[in-house]
Design a protein around this nucleic acid. Structure first.
Length: 302
DNA sequence: CCCAAGTCCTGGTTGC
DNA sequence: TGCAACCAGGACTTGG
């Protein structure tokens, strides 16, 4: 599942490869995944548009174009963004395809220089990605949960109504405490609610709660100060680890070069129901919380 | 047939 | 009682 670390992995690659490029055309678009514009208008708007930056907020990617335009991408649960130098023909799940050309004049500054929280300087400047501008961007999505949105003036409402970015956002234990205050919903449901902290999905929610030794079933408003502090630390740490691992490829996720991440190798809770707990050697239990499959250790997650 | 799960939407409940 | 905030559950999607 593309959650914050997976989307950040893709953002870094897109920022490196796309900034300064000109979109030359829209080769393909799945209308049911398109929001805010018709396919015809989208093609018209994007043709000739220069990419100014690539930002992220929660699980959303924002491709900033000239004239205050934003192309907003959400990967849903099986979405992939692939960059290739040549077109080798489309597959049945290629829902949105852009062609690109590099500019003669390189941008003075490659990275996204955005006001907001979504961008981190690229941490691996030496890594080989595309030196050349890619010719094609493919948004591949087996299920059609992904979304492509175009708008002008400001990012779309589905982005502006998000809470603070769960990784690079400015927040601390007090903010988390305020989010949880008075809530009777289970703590995991609040972690998954993008209006509070944006970017946490089902995998990282389970990992964060394991790291914080908190039961996903706990009533959110019932956490004490010390537990909130542990939770806040676990959120930053698990997401940082996820980004460092270049994402979790337990299901379909791959980066723009079709390479998997490695976070699936260090999962302690997600998907491990019935297996021994790495911390206390108890048995992880599987249940359903907030309508989502949930694994946790009843012995040491309290 | 059920399961996986992102986001949006609806309808019922809670509490001031 | 009225109303808003809150919360659970369903729709959507397709391959395993």
């Amino acid at each position: 599942m593309p959650e914050l670390p997976e989307v950040e992995t893709v953002r870094r690659q897109l920022a490196r490869s796309l900034v300064g490029c000109i979109i030359t055309g829209v080769e393909r678009v799945e209308p049911s995944m398109l929001l805010g514009v018709t396919p015809a208008t989208l093609a018209e708007e994007l043709a000739g548009a220069r990419v100014l930056g690539v930002c992220r907020r929660g699980k959303f990617l924002l491709v900033k174009l000239h004239d205050e335009a934003y192309l907003t991408l959400h990967l849903g649960m099986t979405g992939q963004i692939l960059l290739t130098a040549t077109c080798t023909g489309w597959g049945p799940h290629d829902r949105f395809v852009l062609t690109l050309s590099s500019e003669a004049e390189p941008q003075p500054d490659g990275g996204p220089q955005d006001d907001e929280d979504h961008s981190e300087p690229c941490a691996h400047p030496g890594r080989e990605e595309h030196k050349e501008a890619p010719a094609v961007l493919v948004f591949r999505d087996i299920r059609k949960f992904g979304r492509v949105e175009f708008g002008r003036g400001a990012p779309p409402a589905r982005v502006t109504r998000l809470g603070r970015d769960a990784w690079v956002g400015e927040w601390g234990p007090e903010y988390v405490a305020a989010c949880l205050h008075g809530r009777r919903a289970p703590i995991k449901a609040v972690l998954l609610d993008q209006r509070h902290l944006a970017g946490i999905g089902n995998i990282y929610a389970d990992e964060i709660l394991f790291a914080a030794s908190l039961s996903p079933l706990r009533e959110a408003g019932g956490l004490n100060e010390e537990e909130v502090e542990r939770l806040a630390v676990a959120i930053r740490e698990r997401l940082t680890e996820g980004v460092r691992a270049r994402g979790c490829s337990i299901s379909d996720f791959v980066d723009t070069q079709e390479r998997p991440g490695t976070y699936q190798e260090v999962l302690q809770a997600y998907g491990r129901g019935g297996e021994p707990c790495a911390r206390c050697n108890g048995t992880l239990q599987r249940t359903v919380v907030a309508g989502r499959g949930t694994s946790y250790c009843p012995a040491c997650q309290r």
